[in-house]
Design a protein around this nucleic acid. Sequence first.
DNA 1: GTCTATAACTAGATAGAC
DNA 2: GTCTATCTAGTTATAGAC
Lengths: 198, 198
Amino acid sequence: MAATIVATHERATAAERILRAAGVLFRERGYHGSSMRTLARALRMEAASLYYHFRSKQEILFAILDRTLDDLLAGVGRAVASADGPEARLRAAVRFHVLFHTDSQHEAFLSHSELRSLTQANLRLVLTRRDEYERVFRGLLASGVRAGVFQVADVRLTAMAVLTMCTGVATWFAEGGRLSPEAIADRYVEMIMKSVKR
Amino acid sequence: MAATIVATHERATAAERILRAAGVLFRERGYHGSSMRTLARALRMEAASLYYHFRSKQEILFAILDRTLDDLLAGVGRAVASADGPEARLRAAVRFHVLFHTDSQHEAFLSHSELRSLTQANLRLVLTRRDEYERVFRGLLASGVRAGVFQVADVRLTAMAVLTMCTGVATWFAEGGRLSPEAIADRYVEMIMKSVKR
DNA sequence: GTCTATAACTAGATAGAC
DNA sequence: GTCTATCTAGTTATAGAC
């Protein structure tokens, strides 16, 4: 299922190496700002060779976002299943979300900044699953409210606030910076729990 | 000073109309995904005519971001000056920040998503002033902590969390949607105050 | 599976008429 | 102040050799 997680190291297939390099490049310069030639150069190959692995640049973008959503949905599912009760479940989900945005920083950033560069058909596929992901957080908040442990004025709005706050980590996180991913996740969890608890 | 605020209606100069249209276009398709020809078409003119008003496409992008930062800095200054005490000041600043991101949605969105498309020199100019803006929020949090009304584990991190959460509004806000800008601002203020209060 | 060569097109920007 | 026409360079993608 989550076999879509790409090995970070040695022995990656050519397709995987291309997706990884494209993730970095698209994040740095944007989809339209990145040419197939530039991508090829980063991989020490010619642009034409990319077309043996992917039919188009669009297919590369879609593959990145599609995998990212696989990983997000599988990861949040595992996180929620690992905990009991609304509070522990929300903690686990937020923790996963933040850590995903530090670990898969480039791909996570693209999965919201380059939605506009998808074709209509591909966008529809991605948005359907992103809605599914957001629904998980709305569900966690709603069940905490029902259980009387959370107090939020608007579940939908709070879910968006929580998600965009954590998603923002991908925009400013720097590896080797002042705070480790774990420290950031811990503090984000505390800020959010303090805000939603009854 | 904040005479940089562009009139939304009638009698806008050609340069202002171009900046406004470019804001929408760049937001929808990205800077590199938008051509001068497309921008010209939206304004019912020819691409060459744009060069009478701006020297390059880059100059248009920079002008948008530069004005946006003028407006952000002037606006947050007014907001903070209008209130007394750390709590009321943070409320006012957050409220302004959210409303700015619904009112100037396109430009606000660009001012973080298209930083990567600026030349190095222009980026430096924009980042200097964005840091200044962020410093306002860090200052408000820090003075609340000193006054004993706020309790936050990490002022820097909390400032980033607050700002990216509110900035995120520009990514999903839809005019005429379920919630008015004022309702969103009010609820964001409450969520944030609950999270930072001692 | 990667290459060279190239087709077909679009980009930003300028010259100069009106 | 806006136009038509055009230059130069870069774009995605394909054909076909190796």
